[in-house]
Write a protein that binds this DNA or RNA. Structure first.
Lengths: 343, 343
DNA sequence: TTGAAAGCGATACCAG
DNA sequence: CTGGTATCGCTTTCAA
């Protein structure tokens, strides 16, 4: 019943619609008196400005896309999203989320459909690589493309990534420096359909171990890969317990691997740091509660950084440093100790 | 350089813009041949339809608002959001998130600003109460208002809520049935500025205990309230350890209270279920990992349910059951056991 | 089945 | 500082 149009407000206030428009868009160039009149009328009529109309005129959509592999309910994705939103919401943008861009089918669907059906002012790609053809398709919509933790930065207008390789290198090095002899890297298998940024962590581990092996011939290290999926941690637990000898150090691809391991290994007589050292990656919830030594990254901050870049790009500004790399930081807690031979 | 307009597509395809529009909006009423021509031209020109223009015409904004107290990074809010998004995204809507509507100031700001600046087709209110005046203000924007876990359903067009009171009643009753003598309810203080749905849990606990006390005069129960904030779990831990006698059962307001407690109490010699029973509420991450008995709720499903209602409401449909209440379910794991007198 | 034309609601340029 | 007016890109009768 109440269609609070700009016109009726104009009429009620006794001014033109141009003036009403100005009152909202550029209040400073409208006379104090007129402004008050308009505002009063607007209030009385429960007038809301139409974003769609404003968007149409301006050519912007005030909407950005966020592409991610897996679900938004994962710790990482959620933090990224919250970080992006903390900037974009203030700036007047909403976020359109595209989840599970992780199978050939959903990817195809996305890259065909999204440019046509959704309109966005920028697109964020989180944690996975898109190939050249896909970049090409995205470019058609002619808006900035910002990468977050993308394995390659090719075709992106801006990006912020954590140095996964080096982060895990440091984690492994820490374990090596503690004197450990038998180190295993526990990780879930890489996806076959996509190149995920997390895969670089394994390479960091291997590099550290290979380096060390040169001067430490007694160093025994191995990569233990378990299938992806809901219970990758249980799979790793089982695989670990089935080893010829239990390792004295475990390097985990992520905290979500490490946390269940320290909790459950205890039931099998392996207690950290008494019996083995373990290190995680992420510093995600409960890492501090269980005193897990881990590599900290701050995806919320990365989301913010990416969003700030996006806003600048949208506004046509140039970026000083379009591509940023951040380092993970070792946070020492109590799941690691100097190597001691088992009695 | 490339302004892929509907007009140039029309020209390129040799048809009118009406036909181009129809090809996208109602493909079925366009002849096969024409449709192909149009699609081809559209492809070639990298044409993307403008949502803003479509929205303007249709009167919809294809955007909904989600109001929540606290942050979206909490487990509950994140699940709710993911649930809503799983439906709304498919239906073509994006979600505008308003966080921290939890102080007098932010609330005022929100209720004044959002109706004016943002346009939405529906608004979701998650986990807190809004007062009559605020409902009034929301109603001005004249769109459906859907509540999720709102203490009152007053003024809402639809809602889905968990029965917090009864859920916690059941949790407490379970502990009582186990024969426990000394039960404490560990919770963080209610917010002073808002009525949160979670507050009902405490009432459920109290009701169960008062009931039981009638026939069980030896039952010793108490409510242990700690300040809200980052380290409420540590506060509770300290408070628990400072009690005259350690309880034989702990009933927790939520898993995020229970999980750190079981983990940390162990260091002080209290092990569950050997020394005490403990029950959580939520069934949130790691509850299963540590074998926590808890009351399960499914916020993702609640988000979906709410979203489905919203879509119907937006489309002018009537709801069979606008207001739904769901029950939490006891999931038995291994943090509870029959009461046994301490040696 | 297709085309012409009238808006949807705001913006901004150009006069006054 | 304020008022007309063309315009943004699409949707939707109404005719043909």
């Amino acid at each position: 019943m109440d269609k609070a149009g700009i016109r009726e407000v104009a009429k009620a206030a006794g001014v033109s619609i141009s003036t009403v428009s100005r009152t909202f868009a550029h209040p400073e160039i409208v006379s104090e008196k007129t402004r008050r009149k308009v505002m009063q009328a607007a209030d009385k009529l429960h007038f809301n400005i139409s974003r769609s109309a404003a968007a149409l005129k301006s050519g912007q959509t005030f909407r950005v896309a966020l592409l991610m592999n897996e679900e938004i309910t994962s710790w990482f994705n959620n933090e990224i999203f919250a970080g992006i939103n903390s900037i974009m919401h203030e700036a007047g943008y909403d976020i359109s989320i595209f989840q599970h861009i992780d199978t050939a089918e959903t990817r195809r669907k996305f890259f065909v459909e999204m440019p046509v059906r959704r309109n966005v002012d920028a697109v964020f790609v989180a944690s996975f690589a898109i190939d050249d053809k896909e970049v090409e398709q995205l470019k058609r919509i002619n808006v900035p493309i910002i990468g977050i933790n993308t394995p390659s930065v090719n075709g992106f207008d801006a990006s912020v990534s954590i140095d996964d390789e080096n982060g895990m290198y440091k984690a492994a090095q820490h374990l090596i420096n503690l004197g450990h002899r038998h180190i295993v890297y526990a990780c879930s298998a890489a996806s076959e359909t996509m190149d995920s940024s997390i895969d670089a962590r394994g390479r960091g581990f291997i590099r550290a171990c290979e380096n060390a092996a040169a001067t430490r011939p007694d160093l025994n290290w191995q990569v233990l890969t378990v299938p992806r999926g809901r219970d990758f941690a249980d799979s790793a637990l089982a695989a670990l317990l089935a080893l010829d000898s239990f390792p004295d150090a475990i390097c985990c691809q992520m905290d979500m691997m490490a946390i269940p391991l320290v909790l459950k290994l205890e039931r099998y007589g392996h207690r950290t740091p008494r019996d083995y050292s373990i290190i995680g990656f992420d510093d995600s919830p409960y890492a501090d509660t269980i005193n897990l030594t881990t590599m900290r990254q701050d995806p919320f901050a990365m989301g913010r950084t990416a969003a700030i870049k996006a806003v600048k790009l949208i506004n046509g500004e140039q970026l000083e440093t379009p591509h940023e790399i951040v380092q993970a930081r070792l946070v020492l807690r109590e799941s690691d100790a100097l190597y001691q031979a088992r009695k």
